[in-house]
């Protein structure tokens, strides 16, 4: 999801660069305040780890393969502010020394993967971990958080492409979000398997997050509620306002109506028709909501599948 140069206009690039610089500066200050000196080299080593981990291939179909992005995983392992620093470092090195991702677009890339994906992934992880509890809770939470982080970053990326006038929002959003709802499944699965592998060899490293708060179900519900409303807002709000231009007008200009736009909207839910939802905006929102729910329950089921009962430290149910 590294945006190359030339696709963002100067205003978007500068705005995102400013936001990213501010976010990174804040994260650095947080890390300096919270991190014991013993953990300082861990940031650099984690960045090197993430770089090497991104080179490990996971076979998909045919000859194609996917790889980890790792924003949610690193956030779960190290805590949010350290994750922002680690992801930003990786992106800076990838851009400047390996020409991966644009130079002017570096700010936007740090914004999407370094800030949005890590922070969103972390919030989802913490909320779900509290809801479910135990090792299964961690695994389900990271699987769902990995998926959410991929989708959130793609929506942010779509927003930047739309704001730059490169790809109109009504096309960019469903295309990017749709594709990443699929890619996110891989991201979630890989993150969960990796977290499980770590918890089997060095469970103490999972407690290493910087600010381990006591588990509390209510807080989990509150955070999850906030996140889901934010998610719905992300999916719906852009259609409610006329910015940058309404879907209908673009669809008309492109020569395909709402019927043709629908497959783009819901790649994982092809051929859907929900009665009573005629407007494409509502359809997108519904697809997003259904996709999110499906992803959540898949994550739960997956955690039950891979975490054996005896691995659970304490039973979640009396």
């Amino acid at each position: 999801m590294h945006i190359p140069d030339g696709f963002l206009d100067a205003k978007t690039a500068l705005a995102t660069a400013t936001l990213s610089a501010a976010g990174l500066a804040y994260a650095l200050r947080q890390v300096r305040a919270e991190l014991p000196p013993r953990k300082v080299p861990l940031l650099g080593l984690s960045a090197a780890f993430l770089f090497a981990a991104q080179m490990v291939n996971f076979p998909v179909v045919g000859g194609t393969s996917g790889h980890l992005v790792g924003a949610a995983l690193v956030a779960a392992l190290l805590g949010p502010s350290a994750a922002v620093v680690v992801l930003s470092t990786v992106l800076i090195v990838q851009c400047l020394l390996f020409a991966d991702g644009g130079l002017l677009a570096l700010g936007a890339n740090i914004f999407n993967m370094g800030l949005v994906a890590t922070l969103f992934g972390y919030a989802v992880y913490e909320a779900c971990r509290r809801l479910v509890g135990g090792t299964r809770g961690r695994v389900a939470a990271i699987a769902f958080a990995g998926w959410c982080s991929a989708v959130a970053a793609s929506i942010s990326c779509a927003g930047q492409l739309a704001w730059s006038g490169t790809i109109p929002w009504p096309v960019a959003l469903p295309a990017m979000a749709g594709v990443h709802m699929l890619i996110g499944v891989g991201e979630g699965l890989i993150s969960a398997l990796v977290l499980l592998a770590v918890s089997r060899t060095r469970p103490d490293l999972l407690q290493g997050a910087l600010n381990p708060a006591p588990p509390s179900r209510t807080r989990g519900f509150v955070v999850l509620g906030l996140i889901s409303s934010l998610g719905v807002a992300l999916f719906v709000a852009p259609f409610a306002c006329p910015w940058p231009d309404g879907l209908e007008s673009v669809a008309a200009r492109l020569g395909f109506g709402s019927r043709a736009a629908a497959p783009l909207v819901a790649t994982p839910l092809h051929d859907y028709r929900i009665p009573g939802l005629s407007s494409p905006a509502m359809a997108t929102a519904a697809a997003g909501a259904v996709g999110t729910l499906v992803a959540f329950f898949l994550a739960l089921a997956f955690s039950r599948l891979v975490v054996r009962a005896r691995e659970e430290g304490k039973p979640t149910r009396p």
Binding site: P37, R38, K39, V40, P41, L42, G44, L45, S46, A48, F49, A52, A53, V56, N57, F58, L68, L77, I190, L193, V194, L195, L196, A197, V198, R200, T201, R202, L205, G208
Partner: peptide, 20 residues
């Protein structure tokens, strides 16, 4: 592949201790 990545993280953290 996931266990390779997981072990890589464990090794990276252990190396971070030694580098410190």
């Amino acid at each position: 592949a996931a266990s390779v990545v997981g072990n890589l993280f464990v090794r990276a953290s252990e190396r971070a201790e030694r580098v410190y």
